[in-house]
Design a binder for these strands. Structure first.
Lengths: 337, 337
DNA sequence: TTGTATGCGTTATCAT
DNA sequence: ATGATAACGCATACAA
């Protein structure tokens, strides 16, 4: 490996001068600077980031941990985070917890070991508490995305789940639906709780009774077993005329399972969900959704994180940013028969 | 920051003993080992990966560079790579070049600077040559995915694009189509070249003439301007009765643009493409595709890379693995009117 | 079994 | 403007 000492020897200067050429070029005479640069070129020198980080105690690398890398909500969010990082001279390391607190905990160890400058985290849920406390204890700056965790006070970017749920239920109620069900993520996830809250409020607003048989606590993850949803659908009698899904994964599961039972969407049952489907929704976007500003989640969160890092030591109040959802009407919802 | 010296002091041993407890526990007496472990626990010690990498000259971190993180083909591939990395005790760093050789080149600099142990790269195209040569010059092990680059001899995992194109054209020809067009990626990308080759061969097989007016070289990227496709569609007279798209992005563009012009798919024009749409294809998968084994791309590529790293120095022959495509018939293709 | 000296590649500090 | 030295946190080689 080529080091600054190799450069130094060949250019007849000290290693320090080489280091200066890299970091404070103006403090080196033009003549030697050019000579050193030429040698660096010849030897194809590339600075060793680890050595640099070791002495500087900073890496200019940040970490983004999402719960499902295949979910377009998170990839779009990732693009936002990536752009904001690049705009500020940071690099991004990526992790994917698959909604599993265990995998998440592993990634937190990686974050600690690699001494990245900070982390942007979409927590798997309330069970993330120990991992986040660990980051806190080690003074790793972090910002939460999409979900907050009771017991952790920190910067966080959330979607307005309560309002989003109200929009969806309101839309369905105005179409005339009176039996509106909810298939949700685990209530150990803050967004699921808020969505359930908005759902209940909206039912009340429209004079509809809350019936817990019409509410299922499934899970947000792609890998979660849809069998629970299937069993739930099977035992519902009468069927709801509309179903609100807690996220995009659940919406697709519900539509698929309804159709598998020969139930037509939206003719017999309307379906609406949270989160949009990204650029690969298909040529014919089908599902009515309360869309979240995925890109903004990542971009805003990353900006908050970088602010935190820059204001290290200062005791700024935490920020809690809530991004609005947008109701997008498509073909999966229609008036009841 | 807590270091092995802090542990050493509190446990009344030398730093070396602490290091041994971490790396060769069996070479430390049980009594002192337990004492040291207890102190590590108390002080919440986490080894400094950068210092470790600096002396060991290895990081156990690999890099995956894809050309579009929002494309489900690449996220599914990423999951495969991630799993294979974890199975072998490696961590993954992530990058996204957006089909841009410039961004790609930036990431290659990051790969170099951070001294990761190796890289898994889906190149943006033939223009990746200088970046890859740079990696080669610095002896960074890498494996190419999905696309090969003339001038670079290395392990590579490809899809069988020729056969895939034959499948798609064959399917359409057997439905009775005789004017089959091709909207492709840039011919500066190997997969696009192979797909074009398979397209031409299949036309010949079915006794159809190759007409270059029915072939458009657009681009694979999500950000590429669909205007070129639109203009091309507009000037085609007569319209083809079927269009083969070089990837999933192009397939969706084509369908959307056709519909925007009031042309119905598949009633008036059939559309089929490469790559599937991942778990978020929608509840009602619409597009007929030659699906690639995305997960296998990542998993197999990662295994090749790790083999390379382990066999460092040995001069093994390069491997060129070609994964088959699977024709999945759906609703976007039908017999011509 | 445990400890000492040294080096990994870089930068900060102080000197010249 | 340039250089010598120490330090970042850890592991290897050798010694005790």
């Amino acid at each position: 490996m080529v080091t600054i000492y190799d450069i130094a020897a060949k250019a007849n200067v000290s290693a320090m001068t080489v280091s200066r050429v890299i970091n404070q070029p103006e403090r080196v005479s033009e003549k030697t600077r050019e000579r050193v640069l030429k040698v660096m070129e010849e030897l194809h020198y590339v600075p060793n980031g680890m050595a640099r980080s070791l002495v500087l105690q900073e890496s200019k690398i940040l970490f983004l941990l999402v719960t499902d890398i295949r979910n377009p909500f998170y990839t779009t969010l990732a693009r936002g985070a990536e752009d904001a990082a690049a705009e500020n001279g940071f690099r991004l390391l990526f992790g994917n917890s698959d909604e599993s607190p265990d995998k998440e905990s592993n990634y937190v160890e990686t974050i600690l070991k690699t001494r990245v400058d900070g982390a942007l985290i979409a927590p798997s849920g309330d069970a993330s508490l120990p991992s986040l406390e660990r980051l806190r204890k080690h003074k790793v700056p972090f910002v939460l995305l999409d979900r907050e965790v009771p017991g952790i006070e920190c910067d966080v970017v959330l979607g307005d789940s309560i309002s989003g749920a109200r929009q969806l239920v309101g839309h369905l109620a105005e179409l005339g639906h009176r039996r509106i069900a909810l298939v949700n993520g685990s209530l150990a996830v803050s967004s699921a709780r808020y969505r359930q809250e908005g759902y209940r409020e909206a039912l009340k607003t429209f004079g509809l009774a809350y019936d817990e048989r019409y509410v299922l606590e499934a899970g947000f993850g792609l890998e979660h077993d849809p069998a629970a949803i299937e069993a739930w659908l099977k035992r519902l009698d009468p069927l709801p005329t509309a179903i609100v899904a807690g996220n995009n994964v659940l919406a697709l599961h519900v539509i698929r399972l309804l159709r598998a039972r020969g139930i037509r969407v939206p003719e017999q049952v309307s379906v609406a969900g949270f989160d949009d489907f990204g650029p690969f929704a298909g040529a014919d976007p089908f599902v009515t959704v309360a869309a979240q500003q995925a890109y903004q989640f990542g971009h805003t969160g990353m900006r908050l994180l970088i602010e935190r890092i820059r204001a290290r030591g200062e005791d700024r109040p935490r920020k809690r940013i809530v991004l609005p959802t947008a109701l997008i009407l498509r073909k999966s919802t229609a008036p009841p028969v």
